[in-house]
């Protein structure tokens, strides 16, 4: 039984980093309840910017676009990512293939974005939500693959061998043994794919059409060209949605282990 050493001076960087990470976000959330027309100057408490959000057709439209992209992306990522993870864990153990499967997650997003733009342009594909979905599914899938692959390496493959030895078919084993045992990882991977897509800007910026902006694209134009006062409220809502989803994902799988 190891006795944990006293933290000592290490307390300073540890708690310092937490303040560093949460101070700007906290100030932002606080300022979302500001009465003033300036997003930076506090004049008094108000929830009026939240009702401005709900009554803004542009923001609601962006929110709808983002939801469509995130939901379809999540479905594609779960199916492709789970299959690939099982394939890599059980059928073809190859570190090269594994690297290829995980690369979309660490590849510079700008390089992915322009590569996809080049591909879509040369195929004469009109840009829109469908092209964002195709692009998002690429890197979201890699995250699902990584998390499910991690879970599979913790599960003894003899479970599946035992099922087959006891007379179950390959398909039956997949549905009765493999799938239930990786369910938490699939849920966590799906939730992360959903948040990643929900918040993704760079790739959407390059592969989306002009008539269907996603919410991050709208946020970008809001923070870049003259800051509109409802931005703090919108930012707070978006932050809290992601934080909630990731917290649920954490309950299924320790997400930090996957990085």
């Amino acid at each position: 039984m190891p006795v944990h050493n006293k933290l000592g001076w290490l307390r300073i960087p540890l708690y310092g980093v937490l303040v560093f990470l949460y101070l700007p976000i906290s100030v932002l959330i606080f300022m979302s309840f500001n009465k003033s027309d300036s997003p930076f100057m506090w004049t008094g408490f108000s929830t009026k910017w939240y009702s401005v959000l709900i009554h803004s057709p542009k923001i609601m439209e962006g929110f709808k676009n983002t939801l469509i992209v995130a939901i379809v992306t999540t479905i594609i990522s779960i199916v492709l990512g789970t299959l690939l993870a099982i394939g890599l864990a059980r059928y073809q153990k190859s570190s090269a293939l594994e690297a290829v499967a995980l690369t979309p997650a660490i590849f510079p997003d700008l390089a992915l974005a322009i590569g996809l733009l080049a591909l879509f342009t040369s195929l004469h594909l009109t840009l829109g939500l469908h092209s964002v979905i195709i692009s998002h599914a690429l890197f979201c899938m890699a995250f699902v693959t990584a998390i499910v692959r991690g879970r599979l390496s913790q599960i003894d493959s003899s479970l599946e061998e035992a099922a087959q030895d006891l007379g179950d078919s390959a398909v039956g084993t997949f549905f009765r043994i493999t799938l239930p045992s990786i369910k938490p990882a699939i849920i966590a991977g799906g939730l992360l794919a959903f948040t990643l897509s929900l918040d993704e800007f760079v790739i959407a910026f390059f592969t989306d059409g002009p008539s269907t902006p996603t919410l991050p694209i709208i946020i970008y134009s809001m923070v870049r060209f003259g800051v509109s006062p409802e931005i703090n409220a919108l930012a707070t809502v978006v932050l809290l949605i992601s934080a909630l989803i990731v917290t649920i994902a954490q309950r299924n799988v320790k997400v930090q282990d996957q990085i």
Binding site: T195, S242, V246
Partner: peptide, 11 residues
């Protein structure tokens, strides 16, 4: 520590 990382980068 990881939670902020998963939220919107622009924000």
């Amino acid at each position: 520590i990881v939670l902020p990382f998963w939220t919107n980068f622009l924000i």
